[in-house]
């Protein structure tokens, strides 16, 4: 599984960049549709959950994201993880 950032929710607080122990995230350089420099998942292969499909560990980025913008995406199938299929109203 790899973390994925929902650009509709991210407010570019960069808490994930600070929290990730493996530096998977980096500060954004491109402006999102909402006008924020949303963080990007620059090194998903460094994530503790790289190659895992269940019993995820760490999850500091998902838990600490104040906007619930980070969710897990399965690398092998390309299916969207939980939390991302939802549409904002």
């Amino acid at each position: 599984m790899r973390p994925e950032i929902n650009l509709k929710h991210c407010k570019a607080c960069d808490i994930c960049v600070y929290m990730c122990p493996n530096d998977c995230f980096s500060r954004g350089v491109d402006i999102s549709d909402r006008g924020y420099f949303a963080a990007v998942v620059s090194a998903p292969e460094k994530c503790f959950n790289h190659g895992r499909t269940k019993k995820l560990i760490c999850e500091l980025c998902v838990l600490s994201c104040p906007d619930q913008a980070i969710s897990w995406k399965d690398e092998s199938t390309g299916d969207e993880g939980s939390g991302n299929e939802h549409q904002t109203g």
């Binding site: 929710h9 924020y36 906007d67």
Partner: peptide
């Protein structure tokens, strides 16, 4: 109601 109105980086969402 989503996304919420809290400031970027506010701890309430956490």
């Amino acid at each position: 109601q989503w996304p919420h109105v809290f400031c970027p980086g506010c701890g309430n969402g956490t």
